[in-house]
Amino acid sequence: MEEINYNTFIREVKINKEKIENINEYPFSLPIIKHLERLKMHPKVTFIVGENGSGKSTLLEAIAVAYGFNPEGGTKNFNFYTKNSHSILYEYITLVKGIKSPKDGFFLRAESMYNLATNIDELDSVLGPGARVIDSYGGKSLHDQSHGESFFSVMLNRFSKNGIYILDEPEAALSPCRQMSMLTRINELVRENCQFIISTHSPILMTYPDSTIYEIKDSKIREVNVEETEHFQITKSFLNSKEKFLNILLND
């Protein structure tokens, strides 16, 4: 019998298919949603990987919103939005939670990081000296840092122990070196009872050992190891046979 870890903040994600009226409408028309019933989360790190348009970010967003996070990112206390573009999928999923609730949490997404940084600056302009939100993010406006620096600043300063962290393509702003640093930071937080759910294209991040990797491919989702992922295989093949690939890709 499979052992259940009841201390996991999010143990499982279930799609409530019986509530869906038209499976051919977006987001239910996404192949991954059509074929998905439930997805078990790793107690430490779960990766969801797949090609662009596979539905991984849509699924991750639904998990985050269903958990109570702002669709554009931040903690549960953020309620800003610049465009109401998130899907209704969150209304059709059930999150199976553990017996303990996290003391911290954050939804970090690459595409709306600018909006998050702007909202923090706007809040601080209203609150004034002595109660700055940015102090929890390292004390320096995220707009005054590069995209990658602001991403890493959030992870270093705002993430803390006993937290649930949902990250949508965090490598988008990070160099390969910083992605390795991110592995170190993830490991530090995992040791402090944190859980991560991450959508990514990065083979570097996927190498984190104590994790589960779900790959969306051919309209299905299955658990794989990092070496089996298409991202890892293509990257490795390209680097090992660079000239061959370039001849094929650039041949007129």
Rank of each mutant, 00 (worst) to 15 (best):
G128W: 10
P102M: 07
V226S: 06
N225K: 15
T184G: 00
K17G: 02
E230M: 13
G105L: 08
K100Q: 13
T200F: 04
F245Q: 10
I99L: 10
E192D: 01
E111S: 13
F28C: 13
N52F: 12
V226E: 09
V126I: 15
K17T: 06
V226C: 06
L127M: 14
I88M: 04
L95P: 09
E111I: 13
I4C: 09
M113P: 03
K236W: 04
E21M: 06
T94Y: 01
Y67W: 14
S141Y: 04
E243P: 00
N77A: 14
L123E: 12
K161M: 05
R11F: 04
N24M: 02
G74R: 00
S202V: 11
L116Q: 07
K34G: 06
E12A: 03
F196R: 01
C177M: 14
R222P: 03
L30V: 05
L116A: 08
L250A: 00
S181M: 12
L39V: 14
R132V: 06
I197S: 07
K236F: 00
D218C: 02
N115K: 14
E227M: 13
G138W: 00
T184W: 12
I197A: 09
A66R: 10
N70F: 05
K103F: 00
C194R: 02
L189F: 01
P27C: 03
E223H: 06
Y165S: 08
S146C: 11
M180I: 15
L205S: 07
Y6K: 15
L39M: 14
S57Y: 08
Y137W: 07
K34D: 10
I15V: 13
E61Q: 15
K44S: 13
A66Q: 12
M41D: 08
F78C: 00
K14I: 13
F245G: 09
N251Q: 14
L156N: 06
R191V: 00
L60T: 10
T200V: 01
I33K: 03
